[in-house]
Nucleic acid binder design. Structure first.
Length: 597
RNA sequence: GGCCCAGUGGCUCAGAUGGUUAGAGCGCCGCCCUGUCACGGCGGAGGUCAUCGGUUCGAUCCCGAUCUGGGUCGCCA
């Protein structure tokens, strides 16, 4: 039976008691974590978001009615107790911050009873995601999720504080906007007033923040909700939050400077971690050549080695074909100490490589017994083999893996294998925070599918002045004033300097295959705004969820989002998305497929 | 959309060449216990072995499809 809390007032959270309160009567409220009835004395662990406090019901000291009531307490009952805070009479519990304290209860109210929960409310739950998410309100009671939510709240707080002190203004941009077919799929919202017309939920506030620069707001920040109707991943949700910013009268170094100070401040305040500044910078091409990734994990070696020159005369058709391709190369990695790997495991690696788009994976095993086994031994002379091993720095016991194809594929295959071995061989520590800027991204990326160049970042990204003269002759070689901030091999943010000169913008649209008409119909408001005095500006956006995930050392982004969605973008708790009543559809002038039975 | 993994009491898992009563730990219920805190002792309840179909004398186990969840590729300017 649920009782009222009338007349009772919570003194503080259960683990927020102080030494001065010892001997005083206090009132606590929370959930029953656990009850241990010894017969004659009952111990109850009372839990709230601050922690746990042990309650004592002693048959010799409490009245019979209270004692009998205490005997009825079960897990997750919500109770209010009045009693004297005291030093523990028995052994202290070193695992609790309140382990040397307890409350001798004189008065108990059961504010709410609870059914037996479907899983135990405890740290490091092994319960499968499906059930946790169905009962998310119970899952969120678990201490590890409460810690993550607290960290997330603090990240948001210190972010606002830092940027406020730096003169940034937080300005909200619309959730109901205009659909732009470039980029990710939009979530669409039908308009009742304009049947057949749709708003789109924002993928990012990109264009609005540029307009705010046109309006003179100088330094803008927003913790912005964004939406992308694409498939989910362990680190990707359909709705997510960005720390979104834009600055006027700045260049690359200015954006990097304020953000390095931000990261230093944030990590110190929230995790007490010292971020060393300046954060190192690496160009995109160096990252790709050395690590096969534009978000390299540089905490360990196993760097890519370009062996194209060494193998160019090998009588191996796979290598020859690769080198004949545009942007083709042969590169390898040296997996130290794995030369004795079994055939089965190697086959698995080859399969992995094929899954990443490679035709296969060539290898040389330098076994510890001194023998050498290679998948392409018959296509090279002994001297050639020796030269290749030497180029790779191969020693007894090493495994040399080679990919041959267009650079894009070679980088991807070896870059991913490198990460595979990082995890397999435990080459890094999780609590190590290694930041790295990646700069000088290519401006454009060729799309085979569209048969044209696409913007690597977005169409408003400023090219590097020194490359601009190559925009007609060799567009693929033009670098952009774009930058990403990475942490331990994850992209946590990215941005660019934006184009503010209309002649460059016009040329960009032309290169991207936009007709003047299409560019104008799509971005009329922006292009018009740019006619009325636009300052040079640049910005950056962090993925807040992914950042907090890494800070919390969580394995999935779901663990830092209160109410996340599952793989098919549905919510197991609310069962959204759901069908709606015909009346709603009629008002919108919409027809939808009939429900499947 | 493709590929891979998983689905057995409330939770986490084990299991059987295909054969009587499918096990364990935790949780739950009852009784006992005045210093426990992974409390302890005794007793007990609880299972369409994800669903549908096939093979078989017989299927939780083999086969196929489906569903659910996870990972990943495509996708994510």
């Amino acid at each position: 039976m649920a009782e009222s809390m009338k007349g009772m007032h919570r003194t503080c959270r259960v683990a927020e008691v102080t030494e001065e309160m010892i001997g005083k009567e206090i009132t606590l409220m929370g959930w029953v974590q656990k009850s241990r009835n010894k017969g004659g004395i009952i111990f109850v662990d009372l839990r709230d978001r601050s922690g746990i406090m042990q309650l004592i019901f002693d048959s010799a000291k409490t009245d019979q009615e209270t004692y009998d009531k205490a005997a009825k307490l079960r897990s997750e009952f919500v109770i209010a107790v009045k009693g004297v805070l005291q030093k523990r009479a028995g052994e202290a519990n070193t695992k609790l911050t309140t382990g040397n304290l307890e409350v001798q209860v004189s008065y108990l109210r059961i504010l709410s009873e609870s059914e037996v929960p479907p899983f135990q409310i405890e740290e490091n739950s092994k319960t499968k995601d499906e059930i946790r998410l169905q009962y998310r309100y119970l899952d969120l009671r678990r201490p590890d999720l409460q810690r993550n939510m607290k960290l997330r709240s603090e990240v948001a707080y210190y972010t606002r504080e830092f940027f406020h002190n730096e003169g940034f203004m937080e300005i909200e941009t619309p959730m109901l906007g205009k659909s732009t077919p470039e980029g990710a799929r939009d979530y669409l919202v039908p308009s009742r007033v304009h049947p057949g017309s749709f708003y789109a939920l924002p993928q990012s506030p990109q264009l609005f923040k540029q307009l705010l620069m046109c309006s003179g707001y100088d330094r803008y920040i927003q913790l912005a909700r964004c939406f992308r109707d694409e498939d989910l991943r362990a680190d990707r949700q359909p709705e997510f939050t960005q720390i979104d910013m834009e600055l006027s009268f700045v260049d690359v170094d200015d954006v990097i400077d304020v953000n390095e100070r931000f990261l230093k401040y944030l990590f110190k305040k929230t995790l007490n971690v010292d971020v060393k500044t300046p954060i190192p910078r690496m160009t995109w091409i160096e990252a790709m050549n050395r690590f096969g990734s534009d978000k390299p994990d540089v905490r360990f070696g196993m760097e890519l080695v370009d062996v194209s020159d060494v193998v160019k005369d090998f009588d191996f058709v796979v290598f020859k074909n690769a080198l004949a391709k545009r942007d083709g190369s042969v590169r390898g990695i040296n997996v130290k100490g794995q030369g004795d790997m079994g055939r089965k495991q190697i086959d698995k690696l080859v399969e992995m490589a094929k899954g990443m788009g490679a035709g296969g994976l060539a290898y040389i095993q330098l076994k510890t017994d001194g023998t050498v086994k290679s998948s392409f031994a018959k296509f090279m002379t002994e001297d050639q083999e020796k030269a290749l091993i030497e180029k790779m720095g191969g020693e007894k016991g090493d495994l040399l893996l080679f990919a041959a194809d267009r650079n894009k594929i070679v980088w991807n295959v070896l870059g991913q294998l490198r990460l595979h071995f990082r995890d397999e061989l435990h080459l890094v520590r999780k609590d190590d925070f290694n930041f790295l800027w990646i700069v000088e991204f290519p401006l454009l990326e060729w799309s085979d599918e569209e048969n044209r160049y696409m913007a690597m970042h977005h169409p408003f990204t400023m090219p590097m002045e020194e490359d601009w003269d190559k925009i007609d002759t060799d567009p693929g070689s033009v670098r952009a004033k774009a930058y990403d901030i990475t942490l331990n091999g994850n992209e946590i943010g990215g941005g660019s300097v934006r184009i503010h000169q209309d002649d460059i913008q016009e040329k960009m649209f032309q290169v991207l295959g936009f007709t003047k008409e299409r560019a104008w119909s799509q971005f009329k408001f922006l292009l018009t705004a740019f006619k009325y005095g636009v300052p040079p500006h640049a910005g950056l956006a962090y993925g807040l969820d992914r950042l907090v995930m890494l800070m919390a050392q969580a394995d999935t982004i779901r663990d830092v989002i209160a109410f996340p969605k599952v793989k098919d973008a549905s919510d197991l708790m609310t069962e959204a998305p759901s069908r709606v009543e015909q009346k709603q559809l009629d008002e919108l002038g919409l027809e939808v497929p009939p429900e499947e039975k």
